[in-house]
Design a binder for these strands. Sequence first.
DNA 1: TGGGTAGACGCCCTCTGCTGGATGTAG
DNA 2: ACTACATCCAGCAGAGGGCGTCTACCCA
Length: 658
Amino acid sequence: MSATEISGPSDQFTKIKELELMPEKDLKEKEVDGVCREKDHQNPGGWEAECPPGTLQPRILKEELELVPVTSEEGEKHILTLQTVPFASEAVELQEVGWLSAQPQEGMQVMVQQAGPGLPSLLWLGEGPQQSVQQCVTIGIQEELHFLQEMEVMQFQVVEENGVAATGDSKLMSLAESTELTKLEEGQGKDRPPMAAGTRDLCFLVEASPGEEGRDEIILTISSLNMEEQEDKPAPGPANIEEASATDHTTKGAKRIFSCDVCRFTSSRISSFNRHKKIHTSEKPHLCHLCLKAFRTVTLLRNHVNTHTGTRPYKCGDCNMAFVTSGELIRHRRYKHTHEKPFKCSMCKYASVEASKLKRHVRSHTGERPFQCCLCSYASKDTYKLKRHMRTHSGEKPYECHVCHARFTQSGTMKIHILQKHSENVPKYQCPHCAAIIARKSDLRVHLRNLHSYKAAEMKCRYCPATFHERYTLIQHQKTHKNEKRFRCQHCSYACKQERHMLVHVRIHTGEKPFACLSCNKCFRQKQLLNVHFKKYHDSNFIPTVYKCPKCGKDFSRWCNMHRHSEKCDPSQEKSATSGKRTRKRKQTAPKDTGKEDAAKGLSEAHADGEAAMQETAVVRGAQFPGEALVDYREATAGVEDPDEGMTCEMLLNMMDK
DNA sequence: TGGGTAGACGCCCTCTGCTGGATGTAG
DNA sequence: ACTACATCCAGCAGAGGGCGTCTACCCA
């Protein structure tokens, strides 16, 4: 066997070419030396007792032995039992590693040669270091698992039934079959090293099947029989897939059942089983001539080639869709046209076209979340959601707005963004209970929840004793109180919106002036008026604001006076105009002109200070030109012959309330 | 053995709805 | 200026539809 003929690392089988087969009569001889005894056949359980510790899993042995009678065909039956041992030297190309324990012919040895990294090792059968191709056994096992050099003990047991080139069923060998014929005892054979204590058990099952037609060869597939370990393993991954093999479980007098050691597949038909085995191999002999992709079957290759050529032979009669396979077409028609949904949920009305969809749906009932995030506690019900969730950890934003290049984690988010930001005729959502129009449906839902939902706790109107259970009606109700002067004076026609304003007003009638100046004992009905008074007459740090007329440059202490002046100011006629309105001007400027004298010389003190306070308040509120407030003030005082202090302040407070 | 069919699995998509921070506005 | 509140907006997850691909099984 040349190097190129050696199966590569991806190959799972071992080829034995022109293997020297041992005739069954040799088995008899084998019994003599105690390697294999008739007793073993009759009492397979004895294997368990006599098996070297650690060579095989006892539990498995029992199971196998119960299930599988050993039925050897007439004629030749050959056993090859190989064992490997740890090497003493690592730097040898050919090393003696084992022996034929079944019938160790004189001088017959098994040699192993590592063909190189990633390449299978070679087992040589023959006398001495013979390297004849005819005597070569290629162990094509994944190197990471089965480098012979790494094994303490490895046992290959091969039964060849009815010759190498037999057709029909493959030569599957059960462990039990081999136990009938082979018995290994601890310490058997003088060259056999004892097993190391605590050594991990490694036992491999070798299945034999005919090789390529017309070629005289057997294909051996070697797999691990460490069943306990397999049970703990998840579904076979790429590593252990390569170990695919089979065990046939045959009950006495019953049909033979072939079960896959890699998955749970079982079959009573060897042809089905053989077909199944291929799914655990990477053997793909059918190459696409266009892209060199390999496929297991001609049908798969044909379907693949159709994807290159665009050939979709199965066309839908109801739409323009076409598919590569008939199954796709049938499913498409169910989804789009017939709406046939054979899979119905027993817990709700959901039905689906595909069983997998129903299975996924049922998780919404059971709460099952099989797909766990490795970075947080999140677990999802399907793989896609987990994949989508992982973007929250990676920060990946695969979706980009083609207009503003903003990036998004989900396509739906980007779609909404484009719709709301870059589209015309954006749909709006009208609230069915009020005039609100909201851009997003979800926000309309929030709106409905906050404003139009029934609240168990009563909400009180801030202006009256009314109570409400819906926030929207409360707000609408409170608006009715706006501009409503609910507080009416018992002594005059005055009315106001706030009670505190009425309290101040009533002092006009009672004459009460509770705010006294500490410096001059002058009393005021309002604290704010006292403050203005104090600043003006008793605070040396107080710097009165000066307002200049933009037309004539004249200074005013109050903005309202300046404003009033400037409205009628004509610099060219300033002299006559001024003289013509002497009284008015004097009144306007009375506080300034009279200095600290009583306001009786001009506008009433209350009126003047009220206007000043209003101005001050307006400035505090950030209004540079409180003209609007002033207009309100004027309107409020219009027609008042002698503006009352209380009334002025009430108006002021009302305006402040605004 | 190949073709048809059904089922399984995976991937990607859309639609939907909730959430919380940002922002605008009224009081 | 501050607060409360409504709306805007992006992030994120739930649910389900549709299709590509592959395997198992049946049958001619």
